[in-house]
Simulated assay, not measured.
Amino acid sequence: MKHALMLAALATPLVALAEEPQPSFTGEAELGATITTGNTKTTSVKGRVDMRHNIMDWDNQYLLEGLFKEDEDIRTAENYRGLLQGNYRFTPTNYMFINLTHEVDKFAGFDSKTTGAAGYGHRFFEQGSTILDVEIGPGVQSIKYSEPNDMRETDWVAHGVLNFATDISENATFKQIFVVDAGKKVTGRSETSVSASLIGALAMKVALVVKYDSEPQPTFEKTDTETNVTLLYKF
């Protein structure tokens, strides 16, 4: 009897540990490339890694993406973007968020743009595969320009995000993400995508990215668009 009680005492913490939800990682990696040689020399590469880490009441996101284009040995596009975000859920539909985004894109009229924000998020709708999340809160945005004289602008902004996703068939998913930062000027990013499963965890993805700047540098347009076709792997 004494030995049985000792074994039970030793087993209790192990059982509790087994029952406790374990941290989990999920994510997506995508890659698309076009390379031509001969009469026409063109190189285009698009890559992206988006990971989610769920632990206790925290839902964390780590995203890194880049685009590179070169025509006839002349670079025509090069941008990189990283995002870190943590969501603390205090109910199934309500959460507080904090994030940091850094973007490098000299072909958009600036060297780098960094935005940090925190605020409140709410899931307005969830049914099956369909979700609609909205986030809003204050933030700070800092933009560095190479001309004139490495000028840097820093401004308070109102940060807003709309995130919608739904399955449009058994094998296809539609996603729409809007991000807006409004201060002395307004910058925004929209990504509309459709992905279709090919085999197993591999899918084909088509995405349209629209970037907006209400007050761009001279000679630059207010709106940039980017269309990508990539292979997507879910893990």
Rank of each mutant, 00 (worst) to 15 (best):
M51K: 08
A158G: 14
A172G: 01
F178C: 01
T114F: 02
G121M: 07
F164C: 03
E191T: 15
T219D: 07
V194F: 05
K41W: 13
T225Y: 09
F25R: 10
T26S: 15
A9V: 05
G38N: 09
K211Y: 11
E78D: 12
Y62R: 10
F174M: 12
S169G: 03
I131V: 13
S195F: 06
K211P: 06
V45H: 11
T219E: 03
L132P: 09
N87C: 08
P21C: 10
W58Y: 14
T230R: 05
G137E: 04
A196K: 06
A18F: 01
D150C: 11
A118W: 06
V180M: 15
G66Y: 09
N99H: 05
T114I: 05
W58G: 09
T93S: 14
T91D: 07
L64P: 07
H122I: 08
N94L: 01
V229L: 06
A172H: 01
A203Q: 14
D71V: 09
T114W: 00
E30A: 03
T34Y: 01
G188S: 04
S193N: 02
P21D: 11
E65V: 05
I131S: 10
G32T: 05
M1R: 08
E226K: 13
G183K: 00
Y95T: 11
T192G: 07
V134C: 08
F178P: 01
L231H: 13
L162Q: 06
T227A: 15
K205A: 08
I177E: 14
Q141P: 02
S214N: 02
T34C: 02
M6Y: 10
E72W: 02
A108I: 04
E78L: 11
L31W: 07
Y88Q: 04
T76A: 03
T173S: 03
G119D: 02
A203L: 09
V186N: 05
V157S: 06
I131T: 15
T173N: 00
D133Y: 10
T227R: 08
T40R: 07
V134D: 11
V180W: 09
Q61M: 13
I98N: 02
S44Y: 01
M6A: 14
D59N: 14
N94T: 02
T130V: 07
N171V: 03
V157C: 09
I74Y: 03
A117C: 14
F164Q: 00
D59F: 12
G200C: 01
K106L: 08
D155L: 00
T115E: 04
T115F: 07
T42Y: 09
S129F: 06
K106C: 06
T12P: 00
P148Q: 13
K106S: 12
V194D: 02
K211H: 14
T166V: 07
M1E: 08
R75G: 01
M56K: 13
R81T: 15
T36F: 08
G139M: 01
M51E: 07
T34V: 08
F235Q: 04
G128R: 03
P216E: 12
S44N: 06
E221G: 04
